[in-house]
Amino acid sequence: MIVSIRKAAGVAVMAGALLLASCSKPSDEAPEPRHEFNIGWSIYAGWMPWPYAQQAGIVKKWADKYGIKINIVQVNDYVESVNQYTAGKLDGVTVANMDALTIPAAGGKDTSAIIVGDYSNGNDGVLLKGADDLKAIKGRKVNLAELSVSHYLLARALNSVGMTLSDVKTVNTSDADIVGAFASPDVTAAVAWNPQLSVMKAQKGAHEVFSSANIPGEILDLLVVDTKTLKANPDLGKALAGIWYETVALMQQQDAAGKAARAAMAKLAGATPEAFDGQLSTTYLYSDPKAAVAATSSPDLITTMTRVRDFSYSKGLFPGAASADAVGMAFPGGKTLGDAQNVTMRFDDSFMKLAADGKL
């Protein structure tokens, strides 16, 4: 079984906000070009192409092409990986869209999402006992990791049936404890992500009444890179795009080579090939760079990020901000959301475009 450590934004903010509160805004001075870079990752189905690419020599191949060295660094705790990136110890990191916004971007670190790798297409779900209708959740206690993507999913689920978070009472429960909690007769509603979700769905009387498949494209998994580092070293972005698209093309193959790649990724994740394939079945991978570019340039992304930032702000995840507009975001085509004078999160599709055009 895959050990999921795509943890809660809320936990991350607790760890990260204290760090960021004492940090001044980065200097406007451009960094010097560099030769070696560190990219952090943690275990999650949609991010396993990165360590596999390193193991298979794909990272070295593309790094050599551009005369640089790229270290793909595992961080055993997802929260810690994002905090290390925010503190400047990593040049890039794998991260969910909500966490990229609420931790580095909200803390003033100018961050560019250069690869939109996948979205959760059923990896996150709302479960009820004794009812198969979402409306039956009204008035119940709901166990979940508060201030996380699970909390966001619950808000979206409730909204879909004319309810709000005030119609339920959330009970903060870590991903490590959520399976055991749901097994208790006293717990009749929960929100979780895989692999815990699949275990909980198998419990007697459990019904999945809403999932991330109902809001496709909203829970995104990204590769982000420090914007100033990227500007000084554009070859880093080119190499990373080359690594990603070569690797996901291989893992999508239904031949012996593709099967072997997926099996190797499963092993790196501490999973069986069958369990890993199950994770992938509810993970929509943007294996085609053209599809990733289209998703990144679509107005739907701005709608999604508006929802994400409004939810995040409402839950206090923008420390010290006077409004949800305090953190500026930039999108392809010169579009912005929030404070255009304080853009700290950028969706940069330029490297994905180079891959789509065969120009890497």
Score class of each variant (00 low, 15 high):
M1Y: 06
S4W: 00
R6N: 11
A8N: 05
A17W: 01
A17T: 04
C23V: 08
C23W: 07
S24W: 01
P26W: 09
E29C: 09
A30K: 13
P31A: 11
H35A: 14
F37L: 13
S42L: 07
S42D: 04
I43D: 01
Q54W: 01
G57V: 14
K61V: 11
A63I: 06
K65H: 15
I68H: 01
I70T: 01
I70F: 04
I70V: 13
D77N: 13
D77W: 02
Y78H: 09
G88L: 03
A96V: 12
A96N: 08
A100C: 10
A105Y: 01
A105N: 03
G107K: 00
D110C: 08
A113H: 01
I115M: 05
Y119R: 07
N121I: 05
G122L: 12
L128G: 05
K129R: 15
A131C: 12
L134K: 05
A136Y: 03
R140A: 08
R140G: 04
N143C: 10
L147A: 06
Y152D: 01
L153N: 01
A155S: 13
G162R: 08
S166V: 00
N172I: 06
T173Y: 01
T173I: 07
D175I: 01
D175F: 10
A176D: 07
D177N: 10
I178Y: 02
G180A: 00
G180W: 02
A181F: 06
A183F: 08
D186F: 12
D186N: 13
W193A: 11
N194Q: 14
Q196V: 12
L197C: 10
S198N: 12
K201R: 15
A202R: 15
G205N: 15
A213W: 02
N214L: 10
P216N: 07
L220V: 12
L222R: 01
D226L: 12
K231W: 06
A232S: 14
D235K: 14
D235E: 15
A239I: 10
L240R: 03
L240C: 09
A241L: 11
W244N: 13
T247N: 05
V248C: 12
A249L: 14
Q252T: 15
A256E: 14
A261Y: 06
L268Q: 07
T272K: 05
P273A: 10
E274M: 11
G278R: 06
T283H: 02
S287T: 13
K290A: 15
A291W: 00
A291F: 06
A291Y: 01
V293Y: 02
P299E: 06
P299S: 10
P299H: 07
I302S: 02
I302G: 00
T303L: 14
M305P: 00
R307E: 10
Y313D: 00
S314Y: 09
K315N: 09
G316C: 09
G316T: 03
L317G: 03
G320P: 00
S323T: 08
V327C: 02
V327G: 00
L337P: 00
D349F: 07
S350L: 11
A356R: 06
G358W: 09
G358L: 15
K359H: 09
L360I: 15
L360A: 12
